[in-house]
Design a protein around this nucleic acid. Structure first.
Lengths: 107, 107
DNA sequence: TCGATATATGATTATATAGTCATATATCGA
DNA sequence: TCGATATATGACTATATAATCATATATCGA
């Protein structure tokens, strides 16, 4: 695989961890500083900081400094689209597994 | 976070690994048996089988048996949409990093 | 039945990851 | 200056992951 494929995997990996998903969800309404993020998602400051750095390094988040505070925001709107699409998969799978088979197409 | 959120992370994690991305890409044109998949992606049969089982367990792939062969296919069209959206992020990031270096980096 | 083919899995190893605690660094205000 | 606040990071641990080799299981045809 090319390095672009590894980058593709890295982008998706940035979105495939519960704590990071909590962060991204909290950033749906715009940028927030670390001091707002970690209490909102109920994680340690250090752990939150690591995940924020991870996502910023991988191009998922933007970082803006204002005084002593660092504000993070989701850099690409596709991030939310991806998560919403994954949510649709989860919903359909949950339905399939619970026996509620919804027929929107032949199958 | 609820178990649904863990499931969301699991779905995305299923799509965030280079070997699995190779498999999914090979399945873009429809179902294939394991004996076709592992030579096409140039991975060992056992490793390929593990990743296929992983994705089937997590609701990403469907499995169909025909004689001695097992055919796998991508179960939800959203899988391809997700990967294509991630590809757009990669492309935009690559452009940002190569050409239009907007700001001075840390240093 | 035997042997060839197709797939899955146990055991193992190396590496990656997430999380914690303690601490370092940076900024600001008094 | 000092002290409070905000963020990042080093060291560490426990767990997860991907890959490999060997082998088990299943199906089919001769």
């Amino acid at each position: 695989m090319s390095s672009a494929d590894h980058y593709l995997a890295d982008v998706l990996k940035s979105l495939s961890q519960p704590t990071r998903l909590k962060i991204i969800d909290f950033l749906r309404n715009g940028e927030r500083c670390v001091c707002e993020i970690f209490p909102a998602i109920d994680e340690e400051q250090s752990n939150t900081s690591r995940h924020l750095s991870y996502m910023q390094t991988h191009g998922i988040l933007s970082r803006r400094k204002e005084g002593v505070k660092i504000f993070y925001s989701v850099k690409h709107p596709e991030v939310f689209e991806i998560i919403d699409l994954a949510g649709r998969i989860v919903q359909r799978e949950t339905e399939l597994r619970s026996g509620v088979v919804k027929e929107s197409r032949r199958g």
